[in-house]
Nucleic acid binder design. Structure first.
Lengths: 189, 189
DNA sequence: GGTGGCATGTAACCGGTTACATGATTAT
DNA sequence: ATAATCATGTAACCGGTTACATGCCACC
C-alpha cells in the first residue's frame, strides 16, 4: 500500500475535509482557520479563494450560489463524488515514520478528519501505525543525541531531548486515543 | 521588550547560527540540514545558496575562498560582527504565547542556539517564558475543546487532546531543562 | 568505466503572504 | 458618522521545491 504524492496541497485537503463535513462558503472556512488550531494553514483570502478555485476546476467541489446574510451573493461549496473519493484515499494512506518525523501536523490533521470515514477499524489501525512511527522517531532522535553527545553543546542536547519527550507524549496519546475509540466501538455494537 | 519582525527568514537565522558556531561551506550546512531534525528547513541547494547570498549582501556573513578536499574551490562562510549582533538579538527576543502556539519549531530552534550567548540566566528566563506560554496554550486548547465538545466529532476532540498532551510534555521538558541548566550554572561558579 | 561523494550553483515553477479593493449591512 | 462584520476577490512579491547542470576525485 504505497502512498502516492498528492497533487493537492495540504491546504486543499483541509478545505476539502471541512467542506465534506459541512458545505461552507469561503468566508466560513476562513473563520475556522482563524479560530481553531488549524490556524497555521493560512486563513488569508489570497490562499483560500485560489485554493477553492483549484479544487473546483478539478471537479472535487462545486458551488451553489445563494444569498448571504447581507444580501450579497455567496458561494457555498459542496464536495462532489470525485472529491469524496480523493479525500478518502488521502485519509486511508499509511502513516509512515517519515511523515511523523517531518509533517506531524498533516498526520494529525488527517486523523482529525477520520470521522468522515466512519470506519473505526481503520482509526485503530491508523493509530497503531502512528505509534510504530512515533517509536521509530524516538529511537532516531535518541541515536542522534548519543552520536552527538560529545560534540554538541548543552542547549542542542536539551532541544533533542525535547523531541524525545514530545514523541513520547504522542505515543501515550495514541494509546489513550485507541482506548477511547475501542470503547466507542463496543458501544456501537 | 517588544519583538520586532525579523526581515530574515527562519532559514536565514538557522544558517547564521550554524555559521556562528562553526564557519562552514554551503555543502557542510546542507549536510547538517539533511542529517539532523533541522531537516524540515529545506536542505535543498535552491534554498540554501540563495539564502547564503542574501546573508552575505546584508553583511551578516562573509566568505573565505579556499580549496576543498577534491581540489575544487570552496566558499567557507564566517559570521561578521553585524551578523553576530543580528543573531543575538533574535536569540534574546521574548517567547510569546503566540510564537509557541504557531511556530514552536522556531522557538525550539532559537533555544538550541542559546549556547552561543553563553548566558545561562537568559536561558533560564527563556524557559520560564516558554513555560508560561505553554501553559497558556494548554488553556487555549482546553477551552476550545470544551466549547466544541457538543458540535465536534470524536476524532476532532481526540486531536485536540493530542495538542494538550503535547503542550504538557513541553512543560515538563522545560522544567527538567531548567533544572539541568541550573545545575550546570552552579558547577561553573 | 561507472558510481557515489564533494561542491556550487541556476531556472522554472508554485503556492502562500501581504496588502489592497469593493460593497453591503448592522451595531455604536 | 463610523466601525465592525459579512463576503469575495486580485496583484505584487517572495521564498522554497524540483530538477537540472557542472566538474573533480576516489573507489571498486
Amino acid at each position: 500500500m504505497p502512498n502516492e504524492k498528492p497533487d493537492i496541497s495540504t491546504l486543499g485537503f483541509s478545505l476539502l475535509g471541512l467542506i465534506k463535513m459541512q458545505p461552507s462558503t469561503g468566508y466560513d472556512l476562513r473563520k475556522i482557520f482563524k479560530e481553531t488550531p488549524m490556524a497555521h494553514y493560512s486563513s488569508s483570502p489570497g490562499a483560500i479563494y485560489p485554493a477553492l478555485k483549484n479544487l473546483q476546476t478539478r471537479g472535487l467541489i462545486r458551488c451553489k450560489s445563494g444569498v448571504g446574510k447581507t444580501g450579497r451573493d455567496t458561494q457555498t461549496y459542496i464536495c462532489t463524488g470525485a472529491g469524496t473519493k480523493k479525500l478518502f484515499r488521502w485519509l486511508r494512506s499509511d502513516v509512515t515514520t517519515e511523515s511523523v518525523y517531518r509533517e506531524l501536523d498533516v498526520v494529525l490533521l488527517r486523523f482529525s478528519y477520520l470521522d468522515l470515514l466512519d470506519d473505526l477499524d481503520w482509526s485503530v489501525e491508523y493509530l497503531k501505525q502512528f505509534q510504530g512511527a512515533a517509536r521509530e522517531c524516538c529511537k532516531r532522535v535518541d541515536e542522534l543525541r548519543q552520536s552527538m553527545a560529545s560534540i554538541q553543546p548543552m542547549h542542542g542536547q536539551l532541544a533533542l531531548s525535547n523531541g524525545e519527550k514530545v514523541f513520547e507524549a504522542h505515543l501515550k496519546w495514541a494509546e489513550s486515543a485507541t482506548a477511547s475509540i475501542k470503547k466507542n466501538q463496543r458501544k456501537r455494537q
